[in-house]
Design a protein around this nucleic acid. Sequence first.
RNA 1: GAUCUGCUAGCUCAGUUGGUUUAGAGCGCUUGCUUGACAGGCAAGAGGUCACAAGUUCAAAUCUUGUGCAGAUCACCA
Length: 890
Amino acid sequence: MEIASKYNPRAVEEKWYSFWLEKKLFHSEPDKRHPYTVVIPPPNVTGVLHMGHMLNNTIQDVLVRRARMMGKNACWVPGTDHASIATEAKVVNMLKEKGIDKRDIGREEFLKQAWQWKEEYGGIILKQLRKLGASCDWDRTAFTMDDIRYESVIRVFVDLYNKGLIYRGVRMVNWDPQALTAVSDEEVNYKESHSKLYYLRYYVEQSDDSNQSDYIVVATTRPETILGDTAVCVHPEDERYQWLRGKRLVVPSVGRSVPVIMDEYVDREFGTGALKITPAHDVNDYNLGMKYGLETINIFNDNGTLNANGGKYAEMDRFACRKAIMKDLEEAGLVEKVEDYVNKVGHSERTDAVIEPKLSTQWFMKMGDIAKKALDVVEDGKIQFHPEKFKNTYRHWLENIKDWCISRQLWWGHRIPAYYVDVDGKREVVVAATREEAFEQVCKRWPGVVKNADDLVQDEDVLDTWFSSWLWPISLFDGIRNPDNEEIKYYYPTDDLITAPDIIFFWVARMIMAGEEYRGEVPFRHVYFTGIVRDEKGRKMSKQLGNSPDPIELMEKYGADGVRMGMLLTAPAGNDLPFDVKICEQGRNFANKIWNALRLVKGWEKSEEQKQSPENEVAVEWMEQRMASVLGEVEKDFDQYRLSEALMNTYKLIWDDFCSWFLEMVKPAFGHPIDRETYEATVRIFEKLMCMLHPFMPFVTEEIWHLLQDTDSDVKAELVAGSSIMMQHMPVSVFFDQRMLDDCSTMREIVAGIRNIRSSKGLSPKDELELFVMSEEGKLMNKRFDGVIRKLANVKQINYVAEKVENSVSFMVGTTECFVPMKQNADSADDRKKLEEELRYAEGFLASVMKKLNNEKFVNGAPEKVVALERQKKADAEQKIAALKERLGL
RNA sequence: GAUCUGCUAGCUCAGUUGGUUUAGAGCGCUUGCUUGACAGGCAAGAGGUCACAAGUUCAAAUCUUGUGCAGAUCACCA
């Protein structure tokens, strides 16, 4: 069979993904097996695959594929998120390009357009995930706004309202003037910015005491808000301002007279110690306003321009107004000074617009008991975080949590099922899943007020996106509408959640709350937090910087397997991933290495008569032991969610142990056949290795697994063609013989020692050598490895001797000296130098051991075992030193 | 400002309850190889005062305290 010397992932990957889909190997239905469930963090329906998704979904796929091969009924549910703000913004823009304003076409038409747009462009990301090899159960693909999920959200809202956990109220909220909606506290990012601190003069009204200065200076970063000033506040014990008690001030430029209030809230050290109060546009000012019964003057429109209260500045944008008002104040001589000032300004997570605190009526969800429950399950370990450090962040947030603002002034989303009705001139509200149910309620409570259901006015707002995704692990299995259905009972709670730490509050915490509230059980048992993918300079990958490689191009260049491996190699849980496309090369090279190992094995001619040689026998035995040992380590790695380590251990097992050592041990000489027994053992081992690697590199392992199969007969060929590595059992660790592994490392040391001599003496691998070991036969290692040494190091004969050998070069293996006789140049200056160095090291080592042994406290205080070990070290070192000295002729 | 995490080879990271040879891996680097699977390869090699300082201990990369640096989360004073 002719096989290309370079592995070509492209065709292979496409072929096998279609095959898996066709055979429905990703599909899961409840059955007798143990379930293993993962729900995808739903990407935005309009999103495009980026490196963060790549990392996150690779990890999920590794865990899911492994669980599947371990005999679990693995179910990975994919889906997308409607992403209220982001998607609405995109649709609004799309319409704007067509010259359409969303208000002109109205809610219904807008939603029609949005859905159309979603059908057309949405879900690209899910198709991209297939290229990566994601083994999602695509038959279960869900959307946070499809019928089941929509209805679930509405039901939950009604239920929480009836439980008194949801309420409507007027509060100061974070207003996004670009998206024209309120956002939650979590959706505000505070960014450091270079601002100015403006010092403005506020004149005292009708100052009659001519000894006092007739104005005070107030510092502000937002001079435009003086239009809404309704007081100035100073600290009650501030001596500088005692004379102001009971006085009134004139707001500069505006001319409004406002009172001076005194409150300890004011920081005397900051600015001038005098604070202007704008209750409509600052949370703290609002609180002071409430406390002192101040007037609240709203000066902004929803889009951040000034309203009629802005007087001559009306209709101006807030930032333009700032400039304009400063110019006017300057001209009027009301500006004391302007300083540079660094502060933090809140920006909208979605639109990046500067957040405006705004007083408005919104819906909120109470976070009291439910937050406590969500904290408890993490504190007592029912849910484990990986890495654990995120527990701190989580705890801190939940202990300081405020009520959740869940209403958004948007159209794209789950419309709040609240209906309003006028009763005796008062606006009353009912909450119900449907308009009909709402109507029934109204009829019962206020008979005769409304004639039919259409007369009810539904709330215009939709719910926060996270108010649907917090139900995801439940609603995916229809557990809200049908809490006793077979699927939810089987698949819930899910096992692992893999997500980025930046949505720990938005999503993770709230899913835990929903789980407790609606299932009385945690939604998942482990949360694996991935790191942030950064570029080689350590910067976060972002569209603006343009430093993010296109994942599709990467996969085309290196193969999906190569990219998967590259990312996983340097991505321990919770650690940022400094991504350099170069690490994908390592993945690609690895695939190629395995490919060539296959070429080697497939190229062997098998002999039926030839009996297995003792070398091959020991090689097979050793490789099996070695595999058992590494399997144990990999299992431990997975238990601790150390995926990078698991992959690295598998990588070394395949590249070093299997390719560099095992295959070299059993490889027949050119033109010679291999005995069938060894061949079959090799194939069996190779297959197992592919199973171990499959979760990480699904495509190349599937390809090789198929090519390894014996397809001598048509029947067999057909059987193999219909089968998959995915259906094989993951090998499990078994007891292994450590002595065998130790013997093999000794053998490796000897081979390396001889290779070393070859390279330093310029000897060709073809020159046959002889080896003398100063030890009894079989003492250094099991003599079954002698044949292996002869083969790998091209040694004609191994002799065991009691005396050192003249005219030879030597090396030490532990405390045993080995000699390779030389025809000439036995002892070069280089050799001496090396020996001297070794001697120096050994003497230094002995000194450090003696320091301990000469210390009475150590000998008496340390455990016996430790002391005995030091004595052994001493003996070994002394023996080694003696040998080296003799060699050096000292 | 508060809290948390980290600091080990050029880079990215391991290093379990202190003791297994004066610290390991992968990549990178250096040197030598057209070795009948693979140059996307093979073989050999160099490279570290475990951030710094003090302490506890017979014994510290590992425990304690302090300092420095980096990062994360939260809170913000206009």
